[in-house]
Amino acid sequence: MRLPQAAERLDTRRELWPDEVRIRVERLNLDAASFRQLERKHGGDGAAVRAEVLDIVRTRGKMQNPETGSGGMLVGTVEEVGPESPLGLAVGDRVATLVSLTLTPLVIEDDLSRWDGRSEQVPCDGYAVLFGRSIAAVLPDDLPAELSLAVMDVCGAPALTARVVEKYDQAVVAVIGGGGKSGSLSLAAARRAGAKRTIGVVPREAEAALLREAGLADEVVVCDARDPIALRDAVTAAGGPADVTVVCVDVPGCEGGAILATADRGTVVFFSMATSFSAAALGAEGLAADVTMLVGTGYTPGHAAYALELLRENPGVRGLFERRRG
């Protein structure tokens, strides 16, 4: 028997086991690595992207990109609760799931007819089933559902970043992909956790301008994170090497640069599903780098509430998220 994430296909029947919950789905949020891979594969053809997502869900009973292995999460309304469910949800609650679509039984019933295949957020109608060990959060009343979904999709990143930064005395923190969703929240979390200096790394000047305007980083540098030497030199020139390097980009090949940009006895946190963990481990060994490397699991207790707090208290974070929604 396999656990749901490793399974080739999930049971998607509507009938619940006693500890399960069924959700009427209104929106999916595909994770960035998965969406970008599909977008590249189909050359930006939204109809082809939509067709492949439908095929994946129908074939596997869940949204799990076979190339990246990743999925995303969803928003919906609770329509039935098993009598032994430990999740504390009630019929009618509007919730966001905080577990991956790669392990969530999912049925799409509208053929994604309202989605053009050109964005990570996918309006849809269907149902999903949450297990007894799933995690879901009731959506807050003061934020648009689309905004809450975008935040909760990456809420593990800032929570773990804060936990790591708090272990250092006046840490220098570099966030690779600092202009994205998880990156901007991680920069805000690092500053809140007492970082001495924050460095945001982005690939293009247009992103750098937005990140500077948001005021989330002490230094913003433009660099291709796939170039290890260039990334090391850029972070060093901006006040590094970093005590903590957080990798939030959705492209492969950034492992070596992140390691080189990190000081001895520092920590690299990988939050990208595009990360090759063999490349990271063997790369650190080959570089004789004395660094701790952590895999961002996406779950830290209280992570959703913490990420929403960062959004509410930081206009720069909210502005970046609003731009992405627009």
Rank of each mutant, 00 (worst) to 15 (best):
A51S: 13
L231A: 12
G326Q: 15
I229A: 14
L311C: 08
A234E: 10
P140V: 09
G71M: 05
D45Q: 08
E285K: 12
R192A: 14
V222A: 14
P18S: 13
P301D: 07
I23Y: 10
Q170C: 07
R324G: 02
S119F: 11
E219L: 08
G43F: 02
T300V: 15
V129N: 05
P66Y: 05
A96L: 09
V91W: 01
R318P: 02
V164W: 03
P4K: 05
A47F: 00
V202P: 00
G215H: 05
A7I: 12
L28P: 08
L139S: 07
R163S: 14
A32K: 13
S276T: 08
A189V: 07
I176S: 05
G82A: 09
R36G: 01
V201P: 02
D110C: 06
Y306G: 01
R324Q: 15
T59D: 13
R212F: 11
G302N: 08
P158H: 01
A6Q: 09
M63Y: 15
L98T: 14
A174G: 10
Y306V: 07
A208F: 12
S134Q: 04
G194L: 08
A47W: 00
D218Y: 10
A159T: 06
A289S: 14
Q37C: 08
T297G: 12
D125H: 03
E20N: 06
D169W: 11
S272F: 07
V138L: 06
G326S: 13
Q170K: 14
P144K: 13
L187A: 04
T161R: 04
D250Y: 05
A263E: 07
C248T: 04
P123E: 00
Y127P: 02
A261M: 03
L231Q: 06
Q64P: 00
T267S: 10
E120D: 00
W17C: 01
V173R: 03
V173D: 01
F35R: 03
L103Q: 13
A307L: 06
G46L: 06
M73L: 14
A261K: 08
D116V: 12
R27Q: 11
I229W: 04
K181V: 15
Y127S: 07
A6P: 00
G257S: 06
A171K: 10
A274I: 11
A195I: 09
V78N: 07
C248G: 02
R323M: 02
